[in-house]
Amino acid sequence: MSQSSVMTPPLETAGPRRMRFDNRYVAPLFITCILLVGHLSYGILESYKKTALAIAAAIITELILGRMFFGKWLNLASAYITGISVGILVRSPAYWPYALCSVISIMSKYVLRVKGRHIWNPSNFGIAVLLLLAPEIMAVLSIQWGNNLLPIVVIWTLGSIIIWRARRFHISATYVVSFFLFAFLRSWITGDPWQAEVAPITGPMYQLFVFFMITDPKTTVRTKMGQCVVAFCVAAAEFILRLDQVVYAPIFALFFVGPAANLIEIWLDSRRRIGTTETA
């Protein structure tokens, strides 16, 4: 999860100057609210210290690398979201996976770049890599928050409003609709109850995944149609991984599909640029 802060100017809402609110802070505020409500109500965190460590590691890494790369102190909203996402999603009894995951996530933005763009969603990259390399010490939040519908309804409603304001609701909606279609298809193929197939999306990991990870502006393609196609492809890749019984299928689906989509767009852009140059 990340939010653009490295390259993109802040978006501001229309209205009187006094009432302006920098859109970059909507997502951090929302995710902080989810964290606080979730923890104070249901004790979702093992400890505040681990989440604080993840946030601090992300912010410090961003400050250092931003200074090195751009010669200035960057806005930290993006790093904060990455850190807090790691703090919520990573489940480990040890401290070091939180710090390492945050640092790797932020560094990936600076190291894994093609034509000036980072191609992985930072926290998706960090979490997927650690799941592959250190499964004995790390898992991802996979349990329910509470046992009633209210928190789910509240989070989905607020998340939808926020993502609508950010004009990225179509991405989340496409993914969710695709997820359900593929869930029913899986149920038909495997013979497992359809309730079991849709169960994961009622969990908190998916709330964060749907609202923050797949909608990340810096690591999604530009066109609205393209974004919908990518969201569908993420769900399709997840479908395949789930048939192979991969527990964290959505994380790995985005890990593979996200960069592939970005690389295709970068390649198309470069071809277009060459075409434009030749025409000129």
């Binding site: 349990i143 329910q144 519908l149 109850p193 309730q195 079991a196 009622t202 969990g203 019984q245």
Partner: peptide, 21 residues
């Protein structure tokens, strides 16, 4: 895989043995 799928689900799903693969 199947265990974690259902264990993370809402009470309406996890609470019914018929929903478990």
């Amino acid at each position: 895989y199947d265990f974690s799928k259902v264990a993370g689900g809402n009470s309406a799903i996890i609470g019914d043995a018929a929903n478990w693969p």
